[in-house]
Amino acid sequence: MTAPLHIRPSRPADSAALVAILHDTFESTWRPQVTPAALAAYRQGNRPAAYVAERGHLFHVAERAGAVVGLVDWQDDFVHALHVHSANARTGAGTALMDLAEAEIARAGFPAVRLETDTFNTRSQAFYAARGYVETGRYPDKEWHSGLTTLLLEKRL
């Protein structure tokens, strides 16, 4: 039986776990899609650590049995990141984190939630479609410089 999930604001002590989650999801999701140059830039810039240093204090995390297993980051009506460690995929952590983000965005008075994913990420597209998100835009992915296409998804609240 899976231990209960606890959603809470992140703490400074979570930084290493947050960086590890971001590395894990990069390796399993984006690495197979990006160019060697994008991979080198990712590694050289240590992007997960920089992101956690910049915005980690704003994250909410999913914790199970004392271990941080996922994170969500949003600002205003835009979800910047939802990541769950691959060892905890399909255990409800992503659902619980998105439930919180959507509820807080609605509580702040926004009529909709927006987020981005990439066309190759069919698993995330299925997750968001099941939650009622629809595609409202499509444009070149400028983050990875790898010829990818970003989808803008929106859900009315």
Rank of each mutant, 00 (worst) to 15 (best):
G92S: 02
R107C: 11
A87F: 02
A50C: 14
H145F: 05
V84P: 03
T117F: 09
P9E: 15
I7H: 05
A103K: 06
E116F: 05
E135G: 07
Y128E: 04
L157A: 12
W144I: 06
E135H: 07
T2W: 05
R114W: 13
Y139I: 04
E135P: 02
V134E: 09
T29E: 12
P4Q: 15
L153W: 05
A50M: 12
Q125M: 15
G92Y: 00
D141C: 15
P12K: 01
G94E: 02
A106W: 08
E154N: 09
A129K: 10
S86T: 14
R114C: 14
D77Y: 09
T117W: 07
Y133C: 09
L153I: 13
R123H: 10
P111H: 13
L157N: 13
G66I: 08
L82F: 09
S10R: 01
A38W: 06
L71E: 08
E27H: 07
L18Q: 05
L115Q: 10
T136G: 01
E63I: 00
A108M: 06
A112S: 14
D141W: 04
W74T: 08
R31Y: 05
D77T: 09
P12H: 00
W74E: 11
V34Y: 04
G45F: 00
L100C: 02
L97H: 07
G137Y: 06
E116I: 09
R90G: 06
E116N: 14
A112I: 01
G147M: 12
L22N: 07
Y139C: 04
L153N: 02
R43C: 05
H83P: 00
A89V: 13
S10L: 00
G132V: 15
L148W: 00
A13K: 02
H57D: 15
F59R: 10
G56R: 04
A40Y: 04
A53N: 12
H80N: 08
A93Y: 03
A40G: 10
T2A: 15
S86C: 07
P4W: 10
D141M: 05
H6A: 14
L97I: 05
A17F: 04
S15H: 11
M98Q: 05
H6E: 13
D76G: 09
F120H: 04
R138Y: 04
E104F: 02
P9H: 13
A103I: 02
N46Y: 01
F59P: 08
E116P: 03
E54D: 06
D77E: 11
T2M: 15
R47Q: 13
F59H: 15
V19G: 03
A96E: 09
V61C: 08
H85S: 07
L157V: 14
T95C: 00
L58C: 10
F110V: 08
E27F: 09
S10V: 04
F26W: 09
L39F: 15
E104Y: 05
A89I: 09
A89E: 10
N88C: 14
V134T: 15
L100Q: 01
A53G: 11
R47I: 11
V61K: 00
N46D: 15
G66W: 07
D14G: 06
S146W: 10
E54M: 09
